[in-house]
Amino acid sequence: MTTTASHSAMSVPARPNLVAEKVLIHRSLIRSIRDAESLLMAILLPVALMLVFTLVFGGAISAAGDYVDYVVPGIILTCAGFGASTTATFVANDMQRGIIKRLRTMPIRANAVLTGHVIASVARNLVATTVVIAVALIIGFKPQWSLVAWLGVLGLITLYILAITYLFAAIGLAAGSAEAASGYGFVLLFLPYLSSAFVPIETMPAWIQPIALHQPITPIIETIRSLLLGASEPVPAMTAVIWCIAILAGAMTWGAWLFRRKAPGRS
């Protein structure tokens, strides 16, 4: 009982480096594993979506039965969006519950809490991506097997997940409540449908084509597709990478600004 009643209240020593990040990444990973619903959704949804597109719609879209080759990159990106969107809910929840406020009164880098959520989301999504690719291979996906190409795909997908997760984290900060956060995030999830993810842009109405061409998802999809299937046309890899970095930088700046605005940003 009296153990707390220490007569010499001690002050906290200077924080060892990156402990906050380590502890909060660990926390978010534990949460990811325990939040069975989200984890299941992050893995089953992509698989279900792919089966629907290839087995149900695939025949109508491409009678030759090779639609699976076309659609895998789109499925990966669409599902990365879904998987990342839960980050907005998690961050908004921490905000609402006062956890972020509490961290801010401690002598640590409070925004490590965002790092934790983002890293956990990247990990979740990479697991989901692996499962999607495995299932795709089972149902007839025939990519080219080049180590360089696969490393490129892994790098670009990771960068995309990182960027979009950070964007959702910032949305979570802005939203104020978990419910609002999932609402705002929903808009972003439509972007893949307006890209070359599921059908070639040439088949879309003329007025949609410029939108589809000049949004970030299309160059990312095209790059991944070229890397997986072998390039038949110039690969827009540079555009894809620039889009991702721009989204990431924008989201980080916005996030940092929101973090400061909700309290005076001094740490």
Binding site: V12, P13, V19, R27, I99, L103
Partner: peptide, 28 residues
């Protein structure tokens, strides 16, 4: 300082034990 705010700022998904360890680690 330490602060206990109006809403209990604890992680709902973690156990009580894990919450305490987490904050102990954060405090060095």
């Amino acid at each position: 300082i330490s602060v206990t705010g109006q809403s209990a700022a604890v992680d709902e998904v973690l156990t009580g034990y894990e919450n305490l360890i987490m904050f102990g680690r954060l405090m060095g």
